[in-house]
Computed example of a mutant assay.
Amino acid sequence: MPSFHFRDNGFVHLCGHRGQSLSQPENTLEAFREGHALGGTSMEIDTVLTADGEIVVMHDMLVDRTTNGSGAVADLALADIRTLDAGAWFGPGYAGIRVPTLAETIALAHELDLLLEIEIKEKRNIGGYLEALAGTLAADDLGRVMMISFDHWSLKQAKARIPGLLTGGIVHERFADPVAVAGMSDLDELCIDLDVFDPADAQALHAAGRSIRCHAYRPSALENARRAGLDWEDQLAGWLRDGLIDTLSGDDIGWLRNYCAAAGVRLAR
């Protein structure tokens, strides 16, 4: 099984943010399959808990934005959510796509040999979510999944509930001591936005045994940064070649793959 660490793999993981979310409805099996076909070796997904204690893959607490339904996921049973169309909002040709469960997504990850960065979006019932998570994850899933969240407290609770679980804290700002931040919640990874990535911090985190997922947005955001005088693309190439980033995520895996190939970055395939 691939590791979350560049030092173990010798290559950078390419991670689809909500799957290949520029060309498929986000957080669907179709988005994950297309992301894999384009060269992705990891997928970042979002998860919430249904009224009957099932974990489904969805970014929002409400179904309104990405399905033809209405209401909170927490107030709907899985059977209700399975009837919803999760593709028509994206375009007429995507009608009929369904909301996947976490269990279905993990099964696909095994089939395609993908790693999963699973964000906890649940807010109303974190205790119930962690119990459902413990019932969903098998022993051979633990090295394949990284549970991630902005809420580092919930990650610490998850690790206490599920021995051997890997966890990653999402951060959108720089910290004076990122290693201490990771240590306070026993995190295995920090998920760092590109605009606050610092190579010295990365070296310190790697020395402490933590992996790093760097989120590089979508191609249009990088173009806007270039026009504003920021040289993220040039710096990013060097950081990737030096192994300072273990996983590079974004909305367009095909663009990330082409960028890395042109920059001489080692990829899995």
Rank of each mutant, 00 (worst) to 15 (best):
F6L: 05
F11R: 05
V12P: 00
G16A: 06
H17C: 05
Q20I: 00
Q20K: 01
Q20D: 07
S23N: 04
E26R: 04
E30R: 14
A31T: 09
F32W: 05
T41M: 09
T41D: 03
T47V: 13
L49E: 01
V56A: 01
V56E: 00
V57C: 02
H59P: 00
M61C: 02
R65A: 09
A72D: 02
A74P: 04
A79Y: 04
R82Y: 08
T83W: 00
F90G: 09
I97C: 14
R98T: 14
E104M: 03
T105V: 00
A109K: 06
L112M: 14
L112W: 06
I118M: 15
I118C: 14
K121D: 10
R124V: 07
I126T: 15
A134R: 03
A134H: 01
L137S: 03
V145Q: 02
F150W: 15
F150C: 14
H152G: 14
K156W: 02
Q157N: 03
L165F: 15
L165A: 13
G168R: 02
V171Q: 07
V181R: 11
S185I: 04
D186F: 03
D193A: 13
L194V: 14
D201T: 11
Q203L: 15
Q203C: 13
L205C: 09
A207F: 04
A207N: 03
A208R: 01
A208F: 08
C214W: 06
H215T: 08
Y217T: 07
S220E: 14
A221S: 13
A221V: 15
D231R: 13
W232A: 03
Q235L: 05
L236M: 12
A237Q: 09
G243I: 10
L244H: 10
L244N: 06
T247D: 06
D251E: 13
W255H: 12
L256R: 06
R257L: 11
V265F: 02
V265L: 01
